[in-house]
């Protein structure tokens, strides 16, 4: 059984993986929201999938505030980059957030709960909504139809 190897623990370590390409400022916002988490990540891995901007510098600027690791993945494409993140992650839980997203401050707190409660929980998905600031018609459309 899949869950048999997992032992129920009171706390688990969490690695957060962010895959990015040429969105340094947006990555800064994601990392800021990770600093503000009520349940801090044990490790943050930023996988750079070939950025030509200052992504690496932005990541370095969070040294000391987060246990952060910069990984460069040459092979272009989301699954390649996500896999580089998994290979570099050491946590019991590997959580993904995209580089154009902002997590609620209790994001990791709530992600962790089902994993602790039930060793057979392999995947936890959270809710997605759209940032309030979007006011163009296309952004309003996304807000209404997607999440």
């Amino acid at each position: 059984m899949s869950g048999a190897s997992s032992v129920t623990k009171d706390s688990l370590s969490i690695s957060v993986v962010i895959v990015t390409l040429d969105r340094a400022e947006s990555v800064r916002d994601v990392l800021d929201c990770l600093v503000r988490q009520t349940r801090q990540p044990d490790e943050v891995i930023v996988v750079d999938n070939g950025s030509k901007d200052n992504t690496k510098e932005v990541v370095s600027s969070f040294d000391g505030r987060l246990n952060i690791k910069y990984v460069y993945e040459e092979a272009r494409g989301i699954p390649f980059a996500r896999n580089a993140g998994v290979r570099n992650a050491t946590g019991d839980i590997i959580a993904f957030i995209d580089d154009d997203c902002i997590a609620d401050e209790n994001w990791l707190k709530y992600i962790e709960i089902p994993f602790i409660r039930d060793p057979n929980v392999g995947v936890v998905g959270g809710d997605l909504s759209y940032l309030e600031k979007g006011e163009s018609i296309l952004e309003k459309f996304h807000k209404r139809y997607m999440r």
Binding site: S2, G3, S26, I97, D98, D100, C101, I102, A103, D104, N106, W107, L108, Y110, I111, I113, P114, D118, N120, V121, G122, V123, V124, G125, G126, D127, L128, S129, Y130, L131, E132, K133, G134, H142, R147
Partner: peptide
């Protein structure tokens, strides 16, 4: 494996 939906773990997309 079980898949669990946790709506309180909210992420906003830009």
């Amino acid at each position: 494996w079980d898949l669990y939906f946790q709506p309180k773990a909210l992420v906003r997309h830009n």
